[in-house]
């Protein structure tokens, strides 16, 4: 695996076309950009719904439980995919069975159950790792991720999973949005709210599990939360904020990859830092407009 540190001289110059040419000169960087682009689009699209539904904690847990699943499968001698899909689907079904608290008000058991599931899964992962031995080296890779060593096969796999989850999301987008914005009215109109919630969590869990095997759970989680959080601060119109989410996600990922290429620091750091800066900028500009007495629409919030 060739990382950027071993590739030799990579210098940023004022010659922009030259820099771009340098970026794609190596095959591993092309692969990284391809995986990054797919991840950005898929995570942005799913994350837009996740943030709107206030399910970031569930999303984070689903992105993390893939690791113990994979560790367990490897320890048992099974294919790692069996483990991470199994754990992610199991956790998604548990979360879907929980009663949802309306817009986070009042006491609900949701956060306690999610926290317990995550801690128990990670503890089990630690047990599998200590039973198996020798898996620990890739542990930091699984947690923090570095998608500079992606193979062609992995690119294809991520692209297929991404397409499948986008297709599933596209099929249920309208009813899911309805069920998210006003659950009671949607239920009264005959929308299968419960089923949609379950299918959404399954899509979120399976996509996060698969992609995080390649990019690490950190990047998946960051791209799920940050672009959507920023975009929903800026505009209250669903179509605009969805488009903006995917665009921000792409820009943040590409800039993060490029910055990581020209420095010795990890991709995860750059992507999360750009994402967080975008979020702060969105929150700040909203506050500034509100203070000047301008009429500000949004942020996009769910009616309680």
């Amino acid at each position: 695996m060739t990382g950027p540190a071993t590739v030799g001289q990579t210098r940023l110059s004022w010659n922009l076309p030259g820099d771009l040419h340098q970026l794609v000169a190596y095959h591993f960087m092309v692969n990284a950009f391809e995986v990054g682009t797919v991840t950005a689009v898929v995570a942005g699209a799913i994350g837009w719904f996740m943030v709107l539904r206030r399910q970031s904690f569930a999303g984070h847990t689903l992105a993390v439980v893939a690791f113990p699943g994979a560790a367990g499968a490897i320890w048992l001698g099974l294919n790692a995919a069996v483990g991470y899909f199994g754990f992610a689907a199991g956790a998604a079904l548990v979360f879907a069975a929980l009663p949802r608290s309306p817009s986070g008000k009042g006491f609900s058991e949701e956060s306690a159950v999610i926290g317990t599931v995550q801690a128990m899964a990670l503890a089990a992962g630690f047990l599998f790792v200590s039973l198996y031995r020798g898996f620990l080296d890739s542990l930091t890779g699984l947690l923090f991720g570095s998608f500079l060593g992606v193979t062609d096969g992995q690119v294809l796999l991520v692209a297929l999973v991404g397409l499948a989850s986008l297709a599933a999301l596209g099929l249920m987008a309208r009813p899911l949005f309805f069920a998210t914005v006003d659950e009671d009215v949607a239920r009264a109109r005959g929308v299968p709210v419960r089923l949609l919630s379950t299918v959404f969590l399954l899509v979120l869990g399976l996509a996060a599990a698969e992609v995080s095997q390649v990019t690490g759970s950190l990047l998946v989680f960051a791209l799920l939360v940050m672009p959507a959080a920023a975009a929903q601060q800026v505009t209250a119109r669903p179509g605009w904020s969805f488009t903006l989410t995917v665009l921000l996600s792409l820009v943040v990922t590409w800039l993060g990859l490029a910055a990581a290429y020209f420095s010795i620091y990890p991709v995860g750091f750059f992507v999360t830092t750009f994402g967080f800066a975008t979020y702060l900028l969105a929150v700040g500009s909203r506050g500034l407009l509100a203070r000047r007495g301008r009429q500000v629409r949004g942020p996009l919030v769910v009616a309680g």
Binding site: F221, A222, G268, T272, F276
Partner: peptide
């Protein structure tokens, strides 16, 4: 969520 991702 946003702060969390940045912390990671």
């Amino acid at each position: 969520g946003s702060v969390f991702a940045w912390i990671l």
